[in-house]
């Protein structure tokens, strides 16, 4: 019984660590760049959930002041940090996506295994240049 209580009272932290490790597993073991990016964003949002869980005060409410003195508010500081981090995360994710699109345009593959076996001369741009010289 006490084990269940321990797990339930720390459930957010345990689940966040599981999500984090799932993201790490996807990034390490999968070959596809899009899936790697999704794994990276899972890792990222697990950290967001961790921060917000730390900021929660039980029986508290959202940090928008109501005026009555005995209201309990949750901690607003993690909210501020994560609010900006989400937008930045999407912008950097888009940068990664743009790189992936360009890689696919140049080498015609987004699989790590295929790309590692290629050389720079295999790029489509290099072929084009060679053809134009000939």
């Amino acid at each position: 019984m006490s084990v269940i209580y321990l797990i339930l009272s720390n459930w957010n932290f345990i689940a966040v660590i599981m999500l984090m490790m799932a993201g790490l597993y996807i990034v390490i073991s999968n070959q596809n760049f899009i899936k790697k990016l999704v794994g990276l964003s899972i890792f990222q949002s697990s950290v967001f959930i961790f921060y917000i869980s730390l900021g929660k005060v039980s029986s508290g409410t959202a940090p928008i002041l109501t005026g009555s003195p005995d209201t309990i508010y949750s901690n607003p500081l993690p909210h501020v940090l994560i609010l900006t981090a989400i937008v930045v995360g999407v912008a950097t994710n888009a940068l990664g996506l743009a790189l992936v699109v360009r890689i696919n345009e140049a080498f015609n593959s987004i699989e790590e295994k295929t790309l590692l076996s290629l050389k720079i001369e295999d790029s489509r741009h290099a072929y084009e240049k060679d053809d134009s010289v000939k």
Binding site: I28, S29, N30, Q31, N32, I34, K35, L37, V38, S41, V90, N93, A94, L97, A98, V100, V101, N104, E105, S109, I110, E111, E112, K113, T114
Partner: peptide
């Protein structure tokens, strides 16, 4: 984010080709 991923998938292969590594 979902829209950007879908827009990028227009130019990319839609299936994962290889098995997971190690």
């Amino acid at each position: 984010s979902t829209i950007l991923f879908l827009a990028a998938l227009r130019y990319l292969p839609l299936e994962e080709a290889h098995q997971t590594r190690y």
